[in-house]
Amino acid sequence: MITFVSRPNIVLEQADVVPFAEEDWIGRRIQMGEVVVEVFKKCKRCSMVNIDPENYSVDPSPLKTFAASRQACFGVYASVVETGVVRVGDVARLLG
Rank of each mutant, 00 (worst) to 15 (best):
Pro60Lys: 02
Met48Glu: 11
Gly75Lys: 09
Gly33Ile: 03
Val76Asn: 08
Asn50Ala: 00
Arg45Phe: 00
Phe4Ile: 15
Asp24Glu: 11
Arg7Val: 03
Val86Thr: 04
Ile30Glu: 01
Thr3Glu: 11
Met48Arg: 14
Gly75Glu: 10
Tyr77Val: 12
Ile51Glu: 08
Lys41Trp: 00
Arg29Tyr: 05
Tyr77Cys: 12
Glu23Gly: 10
Tyr77Ser: 13
Val86Ala: 05
Val76Lys: 10
Tyr77Lys: 12
Arg29Leu: 02
Thr65Pro: 02
Arg70Trp: 07
Glu34Arg: 07
Leu95Ala: 06
Ser79Ala: 13
Cys46Asn: 09
Lys42Pro: 06
Phe20Lys: 11
Asp16Arg: 11
Asp90Glu: 01
Val86Ile: 12
Asp24Trp: 04
Ala78Lys: 04
Glu13Lys: 12
Ala72Gly: 14
Ser79Gln: 11
Ser69Asp: 12
Leu12Ile: 11
Ile2Val: 13
Ser6Gly: 15
Pro8Lys: 06
Glu23Asp: 14
Gly33Leu: 05
Lys64Ala: 15
Ser79Ile: 10
Glu82Cys: 05
Glu13Asp: 12
Lys41Gly: 13
Leu63Arg: 03
Arg7Thr: 10
Asp59Ser: 06
Glu34Lys: 09
Val18Gly: 06
Asp24Gly: 13
Gln71Asp: 15
Ala78Gly: 06
Val36Ile: 12
Glu54Cys: 01
Ser69His: 11
Ile2Gly: 08
Glu54Ala: 08
Val35Met: 02
Val86Met: 05
Ala92Gly: 07
Gln31Thr: 09
Pro19Asn: 14
Cys46Phe: 14
Met32Lys: 01
Gly96Arg: 05
Arg87Val: 07
Val18Cys: 08
Thr65Asn: 08
Val76Ser: 00
Arg87Asn: 14
Asp59Trp: 00
Gly89Cys: 08
Gly89Trp: 01
Arg70Asn: 13
Ala15Ser: 11
Val49Leu: 04
Phe4Glu: 06
Ala78Trp: 00
Gly27Arg: 08
Arg28Leu: 04
Val86Trp: 02
Ala92Cys: 08
Arg29Asn: 10
Trp25Gly: 04
Val35Thr: 01
Asn55Ile: 02
Thr65Ala: 03
Glu13Trp: 10
Leu63Lys: 07
Arg45Lys: 09
Pro19Asp: 14
Trp25Pro: 04
Asp52Tyr: 10
Leu12Asn: 13
Gly84Gln: 05
